[in-house]
Every structure is written in structure tokens, then in C-alpha cells.
Design a protein around this nucleic acid. Structure first.
Length: 774
DNA sequence: CTTATCACTTAGAATCTGATAT
DNA sequence: ATATCAGATTCTAAGTGATAAG
């Protein structure tokens, strides 16, 4: 039990986890040659925005072309590039918009470079102006009108603060405007729902709103995330219910009655008794320390040793309770279910800009003991109960504000439409802020998700150029550039995460690319039959182990040797690099580009390629789905998405195997029968025997099919033992690729996406055709 | 610069649920 | 009817990255 990540690590590769404990760091700030370059960085940093490339139709062609033309910015040499930029910066939006249109109509890429660098609004020099991230940004879509309805988001129209009818109109109009060029076949009848009238949202029966297609509407571009927001506030954790008197706690063998505060915290521990956590020293120490804070002075003076505490009766009690819950009668269960449904209906939705949207997490996290992942220094600490006085409510001014519990108040009510959260509070373990936000199916999340994939697609168009550049940078005279280039190579090739710095001692010791330390890699000039092999072994996000040996190019290898010179194991591998430097650089190469875009890009492009490669048109549906899963798996492996093998894995494989064996037996019996039937028929030639033959033949066929299905299932499951497909499916794979694949091979989308996933990806399901290309 | 803060995405485990096997 | 189990859902920790503050 106790699936603890570490286990799985060892399973996958020979054990040993990275050592923790390094007191490392403090990068040598002795920069040997720092150069003038930052100045460049600085200048540029402001120039993001705008992009406006897009055009795409023939992406492929384009892609190629693109790479050459794409801003040949002289890598370093300041100056050049900027100049470029400058020249365009002033165009006004309208003009630009027009241009885009044109452009898109004949896809002319030559134009692109122009926009590429331009810095329009480099400065809305208003001081206060809070340019806000998205300002004018929304890179992607703006133009892409690929074949299909991609959004052309129009940034400049102002959304009428009111109703959607109006929006619709506008949208429609806009659409018309562009339609000629794309002449859609736009299959979808756009019946926008009847929700007009602002207030309507509320009453629209639950999902009743017949599917609002937000992706057919325009997005706001002024950086605001919504215009109207109303909700009921969070659902608080239920208050503590003291234990019945017959459930005792013992200290040093003697019964001891605890006051409610101490008792509550004790129950948190008691509930976890079976978990390996509670045997860990740090966990116990942290727990005990925090527990004592809840004790009365009397309790405190008595209870001085956790080892003398006996929680087992409490533990038993909870087990019994949960058992009882399972045994509840149907009606009781139904009642609970209904109550939950009621709460969901009341608190689980909000109204955002005329639409009723599902909230993701409307319940406040209940108090408990903090469980970090991996070797977390704070495991076991008490996560305190959140009260209304800790809560900040965010909603629009003109909405009906949520009410705090009777006689209580909120910490604050604000009206900030530059953010998407409805409720926030500060958590006491790390001091970080927690939020209540909308469900992934909401417009606000969906748009962002869509945008993410559009950015990745833009990377696709220029990735060759970027690769050429970083390869070139391997030869740079400047250490920092070489480091940056090698790191980027890893991020690109191995899909490593960026690797922000973390505060030491506050979290488990994990790393990403930029934070790799010397101890995390080993170099083998020669290994088996390969040259220049780098072995990675480190704990990444969630303390999941990353272990990989890969041959790299000689130049990379030599660079790594250089980076390692004179360093201790706990020193940073890339001592002149961090994520902020890297991202700043990436931003210069492509608008909106950051390290994580590479993961999205590589994941999606891998899926697309693998699907192409693995799908056989003649396969049965289950076989095709197996291919899909394999393609998905390739991505999961690339991204290192692991899971603890399910506890029941072995057993379930076994039962499956039994089923397969049975089926096999059935099959041979059926075959025998068929043979006999045939023989009979031969002998008699009568109709009846002929029929039997047919029947038997069918039976054989059916059984064969079933057997095949089972075998496929077994293969799939086995291959999936320690690989988690969900994460990549949900976060990295452009859903339009999957949708297109389903359409192309007539696989029902339900086979690939369950209900929740279909909701999240509704936009993709609606817009992608079978010829969609990432 | 360096650090802190904030917002938001990504992550695997825990828990729940409902279909299926017994 | 009950037990089992796998898939769905929930939960919340742990990342990324932009920006503000020092």
C-alpha cells in the first residue's frame, strides 16, 4: 500500500532516487563574462505582443517556406532586429486588421516578417495603463483562418456589455465578412441559444442551455476576462463533529479525553494510520508540533510523546463508519445523492457574461494534515480550517453578492475582472493562494486552452528555424548562450519542464531543465554501442523520477563536459541560466513562446505522427483504438507521465487472462462444431444442416471477435501498467487531432473521450474536420 | 538585477460510482 | 443482492510564467 511515488520509480528503472539534501546553490554569480547582452533583452522584452502570423492554409508548404524567411535575426548583435520592429510599430490597428485579412486571403507569407516584430503598443505610455497581459496579445488566432472556422478574433470591437444577441449579430456579421474567403461548409447550424436577456442565464435550466458555442464568438482583448460575474460563494467544510464518548483516545495506556480542538486534529492523524505517511519521521514531527498548538495547556503538558499516543480506537471507528456508509440502504444513499445535487445546483454554477457556467471546485478544502508528495519537509503539518473571514470574493459590482454565513463576514469582496477566479484564500502551509475557478468546459478555460494549442502550432511553423539557431548557439563564445542552447535542446528533445527555482526547504527537492544539478546527469563518451550518451536521473514534478539515457550530439556532449568542469555534484549544471532568461530569449524568437510550449508542441506533433504511422485503415475498431492508445502512450512516455501501477493490477491481468483462455477454449469448441456441421451438411445436403453450418460459422466469427477484443484489451492494459495517459490527453494533445482521427476512421468520439472530456473539448469536436492538421 | 506575489495550468492519488460478475 | 473493479470524478499539490516590488 502506500503508493508512494518512489515505488514506482524504482520499478521503472533500477531504483535509487536522487539524493536529496543538497545544500547547493547559489549559482556562482561570478559571471565570467557577462556582456552587454542583457540590454538587449530588456529592450525586447517589451516587444511581445502582436503576432499576427497565421495564414495557414497550406500549412505545410508554408512551414517550409517559413523557416527560411522567418526573421533572420542575427542572433545576437543587437540592433538589427529591433530596427525592423520599429518600423512597423506604429501601424494602427485597423490597418493591421485589414492587412491581416488580406494576407490571409492569399496567404502570403512574405508579409509576415513584418508583423513579426512589430511593436505596436510598445507603450501605451500611460503610466498606469496596466497593459495587462493579454492586451492585444491573443496571438494566435487572430488570424488563422485555416481552412475551417478558426477564430478571427477581432480584437477591437468592443463587446457590448450586454447581451449576447448583440454579440451574435456581430459575430455573424464578422463571420460573413470573412466567409467568402473561407467559404465554409460550416456544417453546424448555428442556432445560438435563446438566451438573451441578461437575467436569463439563471433560469435556464441546468444544462438546458443548448450548448453555447463560445468559440464562434469573439474574445475580448482589453485584458478583461469577463464583464459580469455572479455566484453564491464557496461551500465550507462541514464543522467538526466530536467523537462519540465510547471512542477513546489513550495516552501512555490511559484513557484521555481531549478537548474538541485537539481531538479534531487527532482524528486527522487517526484516519491516516494505515498510511505509510504516518510512519515517517518528518510527518510525525510536523504533525506533533502542530497538534500541540491545538491543545489546552493541560493537554499539552500531558502529551509530550507521540509514540505514547494510541489512536487505534479512533481509527477503528472511522473504518466502521465508512463501512456503514457503504452498507446504507438505497434510499439513504439516494437521499445523500440528492442533497449533493442540490448543493451542486446551488453553488456549483455561476453566471458569467450571460451564461451559466459550471464551477470547477466550489468546496473549500477541508482541514487536515498536509500531504506533500515525495520528500516534503512540511508533510504532516496541520492544514487549518478556512473561515469566511479568510475568504476573498470576486464578482461584479452589479451582481448579487454571495452572503457569508450568518453573523460572519468575508475578508474582502472585490470586483476584479482582470482575473478569472471567484473566490480565493491563503493557505497556511506554504502561504500560497488557492482559488475557486471555473470548470474546464467553461468558456474562460476553453479559450485559453484553444489559444495554447494555437501557440504550439505557431511554434510548429518556426521550430526548424529555432532548432537551427540553438544548434548554432552551441558554438557560441559565450557560456551563457551555450548553456541556454543546450538547455533548450533538452527541453525540445526530451520534453523536459522549464525548471523554475524553488525555495529550498519549503518543498521537496525536485528539478526541471534549468534547475538540473551536476549530480543529475552522467556522461558516457561511450556506452555499449553508442557514443556520447547522457544519463539523466532526477526527480521532477511531483517527485516522479525521470530516468533516461540518450545519445546526444558530440557538440552537446562537449558542452556538457565544459559545464561540469570544476563543479560539485550539488552545483547547478546551467549556472548561467534560469527560466526567466530562457523565456525571455524564447519570447524574442516567437511571440508567446515559452519553455512549456515545447512540451505542448512535441506532445501534439508526436500524437499526430504516431497516429499516422500506427493506424491501419483496415483494422477493426478495437484495433484502431489500440493504435490510438499506443500513440497516446508514446506521448505519455515522452512527457514522463507515470503512475503507480494500480494495486489490483496483477490480479486484474490475471482474471483477464483467464477470460482469454476461456474464450480460446470456446473458440476451439465452436470450431469443432463448425467442422462437424460442415461434415453433416456434406453428407446430407439438406437445408437444415446448411443452416446449422451458417449458425456455427457465425458463432465462430463472433467468438473470434470477442477473443480479439480481449486480447487487445490485455495488451493495452499491460502496456499501460505504469503509464498514465490521462494527463497528456487532457493537457497536451490538441484535441482536434483526435477529433480528426475519429472522423477520418469513423470511430465514435465516445471511444476516445468520456463525457467530461467531451465537454472540455466541445470546441474541438465542433470545429475539427477529418483533415485537420495540427 | 533578485525576490516575492499572483494567477493559472498541470499532476498523480484518493475517492466515488455504476456496471458487471458472482 | 452483494461484491468487485475499472473508469470517472474529485481533490489539491506542484509546477509555469508574468509582473511587481525591492
Amino acid at each position: 500500500m502506500s503508493g508512494d511515488q518512489r515505488h514506482k520509480d524504482s520499478q521503472i528503472n533500477s531504483g535509487c532516487k536522487a539524493s536529496d539534501t543538497h545544500k547547493h546553490k547559489d549559482k556562482h554569480k561570478d559571471k565570467e563574462h557577462r556582456h552587454k547582452d542583457h540590454k538587449k533583452d530588456k529592450e525586447r522584452e517589451k516587444s511581445k505582443h502582436s503576432n499576427s502570423e497565421h495564414r495557414e492554409n497550406s500549412e505545410k508548404k508554408q512551414r517550409d517556406k517559413e523557416k527560411e524567411k522567418d526573421r533572420e535575426k542575427p542572433k545576437r548583435s543587437d540592433g538589427g532586429a529591433e530596427k525592423h520592429r520599429e518600423k512597423h510599430k506604429d501601424k494602427d490597428k485597423d490597418k493591421k486588421r485589414r492587412e491581416d485579412k488580406i494576407k490571409s486571403s492569399h496567404i502570403d507569407k512574405t508579409k509576415k516578417e513584418k508583423e513579426n516584430g512589430y511593436a505596436r503598443e510598445t507603450s501605451p505610455p500611460d503610466i498606469k495603463s496596466e497593459p495587462e497581459e493579454d492586451n492585444g496579445y491573443f496571438p494566435s488566432p487572430k488570424h488563422n483562418k485555416t481552412t475551417k472556422r478558426e477564430r478571427d478574433d477581432e480584437e477591437f470591437d468592443y463587446k457590448p456589455k450586454k447581451v449576447k444577441t448583440e454579440n451574435d449579430k456581430k459575430a455573424k456579421k464578422r463571420k460573413q465578412e470573412y466567409d467568402d474567403e473561407e467559404d465554409l461548409e460550416d456544417v453546424k447550424p448555428k442556432k445560438k441559444m435563446k438566451d438573451k436577456k441578461g437575467t436569463e442565464g439563471k433560469k435556464s435550466k441546468k444544462e438546458g442551455e443548448e450548448k453555447w458555442k463560445w468559440w464562434e464568438e469573439e474574445r475580448s482583448t482589453d485584458g478583461s476576462k469577463w464583464r459580469f460575474l455572479e455566484h453564491k460563494g464557496p461551500v465550507f467544510a462541514p464543522p467538526y463533529e466530536p467523537l462519540p464518548n465510547n471512542v477513546k483516545f489513550y495516552y501512555d495506556g490511559k484513557v484521555m479525553k481531549l478537548g474538541a480542538p485537539a481531538e479534531e486534529v487527532a482524528t486527522f492523524f487517526a484516519k491516516m494510520l494505515d498510511h505509510e505517511y504516518t510512519t515517517k519521521d518528518i510527518f510525525r514531527k510536523n504533525f506533533f508540533k502542530d497538534w500541540r498548538k491545538e491543545m489546552t495547556s493541560e493537554e499539552k503538558s500531558k502529551i509530550s510523546d507521540l509514540n505514547k499516543c494510541n489512536f487505534s480506537e479512533m481509527n477503528e471507528y472511522f473504518k466502521t463508519q465508512s463501512e456503514a456508509r457503504k452498507q446504507m440502504s438505497k434510499e439513504e444513499k439516494l437521499k445523500i445523492k440528492e442533497e449533493n445535487e442540490r448543493i451542486l445546483q446551488e453553488y456549483g454554477f455561476c453566471i458569467m457574461d450571460n451564461h451559466k457556467e459550471r464551477i470547477g471546485n466550489f468546496r473549500i478544502e477541508p482541514p487536515g494534515l498536509f500531504r506533500g508528495r515525495g520528500d516534503h519537509p512540511k508533510m504532516g503539518m496541520l492544514k487549518r480550517r478556512i473561515r469566511s473571514e479568510d475568504i476573498i470574493i470576486n464578482c461584479s459590482k452589479d451582481s448579487k453578492q454571495p452572503k457569508p454565513p450568518a453573523g460572519r463576514r468575508w475578508k474582502e469582496v472585490r470586483h476584479d475582472n482582470k482575473v478569472t477566479w471567484l473566490v480565493s484564500w491563503t493557505e497556511n502551509i506554504q502561504g500560497s493562494i488557492k482559488y475557486i475557478m471555473l470548470n474546464p468546459s467553461s468558456r474562460i478555460k476553453g479559450e485559453k486552452d484553444w489559444q495554447k494549442y494555437e501557440t504550439a502550432r505557431r511554434l510548429k511553423k518556426c521550430v526548424d528555424r529555432l532548432r537551427a539557431q540553438y544548434r548554432d548557439d552551441w558554438k557560441s563564445k559565450e557560456m551563457r548562450i551555450r548553456q541556454r542552447a543546450v538547455a533548450l535542446y533538452f527541453i525540445d528533445k526530451l520534453a523536459l519542464r522549464a525548471g523554475n527555482e524553488k525555495e529550498e526547504g519549503e518543498t521537496a527537492d525536485t528539478v526541471g531543465c534549468c534547475s538540473l544539478r551536476v549530480e543529475h546527469i552522467k556522461l558516457y563518451p561511450k556506452l555499449d554501442d553508442q557514443e556520447y550518451v547522457v544519463e539523466f536521473d532526477f526527480l521532477g514534478k511531483d517527485s516522479i523520477r525521470y530516468y533516461n539515457k540518450i545519445p546526444v550530439e558530440k557538440r552537446v556532449f562537449k558542452n556538457l563536459q565544459l559545464f561540469l568542469e570544476n563543479k560539485q555534484p550539488e552545483d547547478d549544471l546551467f549556472d548561467r541560466l534560469n527560466t526567466s532568461i530562457l523565456n525571455k530569449h524564447l519570447q524574442e524568437l516567437m511571440d508567446g513562446l515559452t519553455a512549456k510550449v515545447f512540451r505542448t508542441y512535441n506532445a501534439s506533433i508526436t500524437l499526430q505522427q504516431q497516429l499516422k504511422e500506427l493506424t491501419c485503415p483496415d483494422d477493426s475498431d478495437p484495433a484502431k483504438i489500440l493504435s490510438y492508445n499506443r500513440a497516446n502512450r508514446a506521448v505519455a512516455i515522452l512527457c514522463n507521465h507515470q503512475r503507480a501501477p494500480p494495486k489490483t493490477f496483477e490480479k486484474s491481468m490475471q482474471t483477464l487472462q483467464t477470460k482469454i483462455d476461456d474464450k480460446q477454449k470456446q473458440l476451439s469448441t465452436a470450431r469443432k462444431q463448425l467442422k462437424t456441421a460442415k461434415a453433416d451438411h456434406k453428407a446430407s445436403h439438406d437445408d437444415k444442416s446448411k443452416k446449422t453450418v451458417e449458425v456455427k460459422r457465425k458463432a465462430v466469427q463472433r467468438i473470434e471477435e470477442q477473443l480479439m477484443k480481449l486480447q487487445v484489451l490485455a495488451t493495452d492494459r499491460e502496456e499501460n501498467k505504469q503509464i498514465a495517459l490521462g494527463t497528456s490527453k487532457l493537457n497536451y494533445l490538441d484535441p482536434r487531432i483526435s477529433v480528426a482521427w475519429c472522423k477520418k476512421y469513423s470511430i465514435p468520439i465516445e471511444k476516445i473521450y468520456n463525457k467530461t472530456q467531451r465537454e472540455k473539448f466541445a470546441w474541438a469536436i465542433d470545429m475539427a474536420d477529418d483533415d485537420y492538421e495540427f
